[in-house]
Structures are given as structure tokens and as C-alpha cells.
Amino acid sequence: MKQINWVKKLTSRKLWTAVASFVSMMILATGGAENTATQVTALIMAGASVIAYIIGEGLTDAANIEGEVGIEVQEDTEE
């Protein structure tokens, strides 16, 4: 069975658009106001942007650390 790449899923704009759409439609279907649905959708998309930024920065930092470790190992083996 394939492993799910959660990082890719959580940073997907398509996923967050689908979630925001579903939630806003549920608000409207249960009798909520259109204004409320719009505000909730905006909050979901803002949260998605923050999540994508945090994950992206974490991946960048991890790649930089791995690159620095690799350089140090190469320097030690040349001596």
C-alpha cells in the first residue's frame, strides 16, 4: 500500500479550496447566512496559507541542515 504524502496534501490549494467550499455549503444548507459562510471560507483559506508557509519553511530549513551536514562530512573525508 502506498504511503500518503501528508506534507503535499496539507499544502495543496485544491484541498483547502475543497474544504472551504464544503464548509461554506454546509453553513448555507443548515440555514446560516451567506455573510457567515463567506467569513468562514476566508478564515479557512487564511489558515491554509499559514499552514502551507510553516510547512514550506520547515522543509527549506531541513534541506539546509542536511546540506550543511553533507558538506562537513565531505570536508572530513578529504583530510
Rank of each mutant, 00 (worst) to 15 (best):
L10D: 01
K8F: 00
S49Y: 03
A62S: 03
I65N: 12
W6K: 07
K2Y: 09
V40Q: 03
S21Y: 07
S24Q: 07
T36C: 02
A46S: 11
E68T: 11
G31D: 07
G31T: 08
G58Q: 13
G58E: 12
Y53A: 10
R13C: 06
V23W: 01
F22W: 11
T77L: 09
S21F: 04
R13S: 10
N5F: 02
Q74T: 07
A20C: 03
E66C: 09
G56E: 12
I44C: 12
F22A: 14
V23S: 06
T41M: 06
E66Q: 14
Q39Y: 10
I4Q: 06
I4N: 09
A33T: 05
L59H: 15
N35G: 11
A33N: 11
K9I: 01
G56S: 15
K9S: 04
K2G: 15
V40E: 04
L43M: 15
S12D: 05
E75G: 03
L15N: 01
E68M: 08
V73Y: 12
A18W: 05
I71D: 13
V73W: 13
M25T: 00
S24L: 03
G32S: 09
G67E: 13
T41K: 14
Q3D: 11
L59T: 14
G56W: 11
I27S: 06
E72W: 09
K2I: 11
M1P: 15
M1H: 14
T17G: 14
T77H: 15
T30D: 14
A62L: 04
T38M: 07
A33P: 11
I27F: 00
K9T: 03
I55C: 09
E79L: 02
A18M: 15
A33S: 14
T41H: 11
A20F: 00
A52G: 06
N35F: 04
E72R: 08
E68V: 04
A52R: 02
N35L: 01
V7D: 14
V19Y: 01
A20R: 01
V40G: 02
D61E: 14
N64K: 15
M25C: 02
I51Q: 12
A42R: 13
G31K: 04
V50S: 11
T77Y: 13
T30L: 06
A48F: 00
K8M: 02
D76T: 13
S24C: 06
V19C: 07
M26A: 08
T41E: 12
M26Y: 02
E79V: 07
N35M: 05
